[in-house]
Amino acid sequence: MRKILGAGITAGALLALSAALPATAAEGDATLSVLHAVPDLTVDVYVNDELTIDDFEPGTLGGPLTLAPGTYTVAITAADAADASDPAIGPVDLVLEADGNYTAVAHLTEAGEPTATLFTNDVSTLAAGEGRLTVRHTAAAPAVDVLAAETPVIEGLTNPNEEVLTLDAGTVSASVAAAGTTDPVIGPADVNVAEGVNTIVYAWGSLEDDNLDLAIQTIGGLHSTPDGVPAGQAGLVATNAPGASGALWIGAAVLGLMAFAVTTVRRSNRREAATAERADR
């Protein structure tokens, strides 16, 4: 792989290029996942009148499908339906844009009626060390707060809406409580907000039926990459070292001194830079 690179292409340019390329099979294809979040109902999913998911169980995530951009008609029927003509949910038109990443969720409205919502997943690149946490309210329940370690991080989230947070990667103890309260109706559950990953948490089910639960979807590959590995500072094993062929101790000593001088200068420059930075604050 390294061999086919032009010498003039820098690593930075390569990174920019790879970020611009779609993560899907064909250029411009959209990505669609489907989450079934209606309790106690096994269904069939038809896309453009074609049976795409047979006997889809609640709490299951299907996909991801890569689809050409366009409008797709989705109908969700009872599992024993012969075709899409008598849907339990829909038919709904899903507009998928080029390179878009989507999750279609079959779920309950706040009032407990089956419905479907198309969410757009944020697949933009994250800085090193960061993870993305997306929380979606798809449950038959009023507004909720999301607590991380008992502190509200999302307040007043209503069905069928979402909130997206960028966090330092790591595990959070997450729970869901009625808005303005801290008594969990879901959780607490440990959620690994992994680095370079969009971790999408769905609150689903029904408060009234006492079957609220979490569903989780993860979309990886959103990480950024170190732009180099500067792994030497003294030139002691350099192939162009003055003593490299003659193996003279004097050569090595001179080389060491030269390198020391160079590094000393660099260090003092760094100190000046650090001082300047402090002065700016």
Binding site: I53, T60, N192, L214, A215
Partner: peptide, 14 residues
């Protein structure tokens, strides 16, 4: 189409 259980276990393992 691939399907997975989207329960709380469907996370990136540390």
């Amino acid at each position: 189409m691939p399907r997975i259980d989207a329960g709380a276990g469907n996370q990136v393992a540390p």
